[in-house]
Design a binder for these strands. Structure first.
Lengths: 125, 125
DNA sequence: TGCATACATCGACGAACGTCAATGTGACGT
DNA sequence: ACGTCACATTGACGTTCGTCGATGTATGCA
């Protein structure tokens, strides 16, 4: 299919639409300038991928619904996964910038990063 | 590690924190009731997974940034993927409820579903 | 110095994903 | 009926992901 075929079909569609129902004709203006470019999409996809796992979503909700901070030791049992698996998932959340990690003594404490959550939310609206 | 070990460490942490800095002690209240359960997390993860691919994000942006509707034939070239691949990705977006599909004659038209985008956005706040 | 603890990393496994060529399906126009 | 077109489905391939046992790292205590 080349661009001339495309144009021909668009005109045919527009004509038939006008004749039959006068419905919306959005064809022939396929891509607007405010669409995501490949680089933006790559970065955003990486962030959304951090939310694309049920275990990580629950871990994140444990962090966001807590009063400020949560100890890593309190995430293993409620998540129902092994300690290495929880550590793996928390690293993904931290790398995505959704959660901040702070080591104090033997323990690691996590807290949410509202700015990053806001950033992702703004993409959906 | 059992629950008694956990309690012992929490008390030790609380004590040392009070002695040294009187910092926040969020331990011993690990899981709040407003955390996601497994079923909710499963469904949300499936929706976010639809956004976890750069090609799908761009396809979605083509739809949302258009004036109402976009023809499937106008998605192949700007996405830079083959026609079967675009069809595959659009099916995932439709199954996730983010995009609505309507066949008119030979063509298929897509439009965004704002309600579903709102639902996902509310999870992040 | 030596041991115990909390968490991270490694290695391996099966499952799910993204991709495209080939083919199938359904709707036009002649 | 036939050919053509738009789009979906299939099948196969390599890649990435989630998971856990085993092991590594670093901190605290005696």
């Amino acid at each position: 299919m080349d661009v001339f075929d495309n144009l021909r079909y668009c005109f045919a569609m527009a004509a038939s639409t006008l004749i039959t129902l006068a419905g919306p004709v959005a064809c022939c203006a396929p891509v607007r300038s405010d669409a995501l470019d490949e680089a933006q999409a790559e970065g955003l996809a990486r962030s959304f991928a951090a939310l694309a796992d049920p275990v990580r979503l629950r871990l994140l909700s444990f962090v966001t619904s807590s009063a400020g901070e949560v100890c890593a030791c309190d995430l293993v049992e409620p998540s129902g996964r092994s300690q290495p698996t929880v550590s793996h998932h928390m690293k993904i959340l931290v790398d995505a910038g959704l959660v901040a990690r702070e080591k104090r003594g033997l323990w690691v404490w996590y807290r949410a990063v509202p700015a990053q959550l806001d950033a992702l939310r703004s993409v959906l609206g």
